[in-house]
Amino acid sequence: MTGQNALLDRRDAVKTLLDDRGDLLVVTGLGGTCWDCTAAGDTPLNFPMWGGMGGAAMVGLGLSLAQPSRRVLVVTGDGEMLMGLGALATISTARPANLAIAVIDNERYGETGMQRTHTAAGVDIAGMATAAGFVQTCTVLDESALAEFTDASRSVAGPLLGVIKVATDKVPLVMPPRDGALLKDRFREAVLGTPATN
């Protein structure tokens, strides 16, 4: 993908992924995807991570195994996913039918000075997920492919992974609450009911 012009705006892409989401459960990576998902609308059904780099996909796995009747979408960045590539093998082996991962790939470490990630050199995260045994993977370059992946993420038996190539434009910070205990409690209450936080 080196040198390719990214076609999609990250905020628009994440908004599409989360439009009319119903009771979809969402886990974000830290940094850009945390702000993107919050910009699309903060809700207790988001679990936005501010740390634990490399762990977002695995949080999604634990959640999808605990809530097999709900769809779970992990929205994370290329740098975050690269830090936890072993999770692709673990998730593929666990085979959660209700889990999809969207990697918002700007080929940069956006929070630390826009240094190039390995995807800028051509490392293919979707190809890695395919090799790990994911049921369906894709690299999304345009809006029609994004719409297709969005539909699949809510309906196709997974695990699924889509790499969504986006532009490197700077976008405003839109932050969710930062207290991890609050984010955890509000999520559990929304999913499990009030007794979950007692």
Partner: peptide, 17 residues
């Protein structure tokens, strides 16, 4: 594949009850 995956997994499990 590595133990740190387990911490994230159990956070997800707890989020799901």
């Amino acid at each position: 594949t590595t133990e740190e995956e387990g911490v994230a997994l159990l956070l997800g499990a707890w989020l799901g009850g």
